[in-house]
Design a protein around this nucleic acid. Structure first.
Length: 549
RNA sequence: GGCCCCAUCGUCUAGGCAGGUCCAGGACACCGGGUUUUCAACCCGGCAACAGGGGUUCGAAUCCCCUUGGGGCUACCA
């Protein structure tokens, strides 16, 4: 029997791909690639209410950005399609029918209120809730009658109670659930759609999945799913299950999409004198919605949150994969970091390429305990991956990044881009490189002068006077090259018996508006004589005007 | 409340299954110093952990039990 490994990533399309999902996808992909197997992307869109139309595309884009390609799934097809569960309803219906005929499942007609009451009673009695299975299962005529009366009809799986349910987990070993502990769960909803627990089992079988790597939040689903598997596919061996540790946030609890709205809310609360009305306008939500958001009652969608954050200049914690892209991270760094969240190669290696991860990945080295998402470590990884990346790759990533954020640096040709990248050696993110370079591509009136920089560097310590001297020296040289510029600045500093910083900083602020830029000699050379002189003139004028006020 | 999982530096972890080689190793963070035209990067040094309590054993971070703490699930969500 061929032992081909088949894994899958099965997201529900409710929004962007977030770090937790990306890690799950990565581990499954790594295992499949490592084993020369098949990696499937399956979209679990069985909840009509939660699906968002653009989510599937977003998830696919994000996976591809990370370099995770699927062998079967949307857009690429495959022998077990369709890969959207919403398009497989007839398949699920057949299996529900089979189970119904075999008396392994039964119809239910409860209202939400009735179920609620049942749960409350269990809680009051300090017992776990398990649906009370009827002595006699309702038959087809009962179901037909209920439907005719407009009552909701669901189908529940009668979970075997003769013996404990035993789950063998790759990470956690043998886990035993007492008989009756896992209650009869719904496999078909009243709208006719299958539930996750059912569709998942059917599809894992039909798509011949051999390994399921997923988050620990699914551990409690496993005994039920395995029981279902035995009821449906007794002859086929179930997939091996590996439940990974959960990634927790530094603010406590499972890392989730709520992180960003939460941070936004806190930021708004911490701010003085901001107009609720204006902000609501920015976020394109009503005043009521805004008030509800601040009070914690509701959460606007991500577009609103992002718009408000951008308007207020608030840096929200990255949580979706696309957030990291926007912040200037390299996919290689994100992949590397994600891989080490709950897994390690068993030696001291940390910075690893995808190829190295592929060589080393092994299910037996998944860790059991939860891990905290440490952004600072990711930053360190990113710094290292920028350093390691080949010039070709880095320039491509940089261009993708510039395009994404709509940077003026996009105007640069490849030669200039590679020079910018080179002189910004040591950058932590692509955003650093962009920030240090963009002044070259701005018109004079687009440059924003940082008040503090002007104050500290130009108004104090004769900064302005030094700047004027620099201008005079620059004006009389025709050789406006890196070497010449360096000579001019260094000799001026020497002449004045001051450090180079005293000369370079005023010039830096003059040409880019801030104390942070690419190295000064390169910056001046790239900007060119004409623009440099013009910016100095403009700055001198601007600062003089400011000093008078 | 019920069920389940987990527990080594601030954080991610190695070591644990096959107890002595671990007065616990690495990385990030942090602190101090160096380098320096800014921000970074870089170099050197330092701080820092086996949750607590019982066992088992000649010997326990490693095995067992309890306590405590953290997390997950408890939906006609996935």
């Amino acid at each position: 029997m061929s032992e081909q490994v088949v894994t899958r990533f099965a997201p529900s399309p409710t929004g962007y791909l977030h770090v937790g999902g990306a890690r799950t996808a990565l581990f499954n992909w790594l295992l499949a690639r490592r084993a020369g197997g098949v990696f499937i992307l399956r979209i679990e869109d069985t909840d009509q209410k939660r699906n968002t139309p653009t989510a599937m595309q977003q998830v696919m884009d994000d996976l591809r950005w990370l370099g995770i390609e699927w062998d079967e799934g949307p857009e690429v097809g495959g022998p077990s399609g369709p890969y959207l569960q919403s398009q497989r309803r007839d398949i699920y219906d057949r299996y529900v029918r089979k189970l119904l005929d075999e008396q392994k499942t039964y119809y239910c007609f409860d209202t939400p209120e009735q179920l609620d009451a049942l749960r409350r009673r269990a809680e009051a009695e300090k017992k776990g809730f398990a649906y009370p299975r009827p002595e006699q299962f309702p038959d087809e005529s009962d179901a037909a009658k209920a439907r005719a009366e407009g009552r909701s009809v669901t189908v529940r799986f009668a979970v075997p109670r003769s013996e404990p349910l035993v789950v063998r987990d790759v990470v956690r070993g043998v886990i035993t659930f007492a008989p009756g502990e896992i209650g009869d769960f719904i496999i078909q909803k009243s709208d006719g759609f299958p539930t996750y627990n059912f569709a998942c089992v059917v599809d894992d079988f039909l798509m011949r999945i051999t390994h399921v790597i997923r988050g620990q939040e699914h551990l409690m689903n496993t005994p039920g799913q395995q029981a279902l598997w035995r009821a449906l596919f007794a002859d086929a061996p179930p997939p091996k299950y590996a439940h990974m540790s959960v990634t927790v946030s530094d603010t406590g609890g499972k890392l989730s999409k709520r992180e960003r709205p939460k941070a936004m809310r806190n930021a708004i609360k911490a701010m003085q004198d901001i107009s609720a009305e204006a902000l609501a306008g920015i976020g394109n939500i009503s005043a009521e919605e805004f008030a509800d958001f601040i009070s914690g009652k509701t959460t606007p969608d991500m577009v609103s949150i992002d718009a408000m954050a951008e308007f207020l200049g608030v840096q929200l914690p990255e949580i979706n994969i696309v957030d990291f892209f926007k912040s200037g991270y390299l996919p290689e760094a994100v992949v590397n970091f994600l891989a080490l969240l709950g897994w390690n190669p068993g030696d001291d290696r940390e910075i690893m390429t995808v190829e190295q991860l592929l060589e080393s990945f092994d299910l037996s080295r998944l860790t059991k305990s939860n891990s905290l998402f440490d952004r600072k470590k990711l930053l360190a990884f990113n710094t290292e991956h920028i350093r390691m990346a080949s010039p070709e790759k880095l320039i491509q990533h940089f261009k993708d990044y510039l395009k994404l954020i709509g940077s003026p640096v996009l105007a640069a040709d490849d030669e200039l881009l590679s020079r910018l990248i080179k002189i910004c050696e040591g950058a932590r993110t692509l955003a650093d490189i962009e920030r240090k370079s963009r002044f070259l591509f701005l018109k004079r009136d687009e440059i924003e002068y940082d008040d503090k920089a002007v104050e500290k560097v130009l108004l104090k310590n004769d900064g302005l006077a030094v700047l004027v001297e620099v201008r005079e020296k620059f004006a009389v040289t025709d050789d406006f090259t890196h070497g010449r510029i360096e000579t001019i600045l260094r000799s001026l500093a020497e002449e004045k018996q001051v450090g180079l910083g005293k000369v370079a900083q005023p010039l830096r602020v003059a040409i880019c508006g801030s104390t942070i830029s690419a190295p000064i000699f390169d910056s001046v050379e790239m900007l060119g004589k004409e623009k440099t002189l013009a910016r100095i003139d403009w700055t001198v004028e601007f600062v003089k005007g400011k000093a008078q006020i």
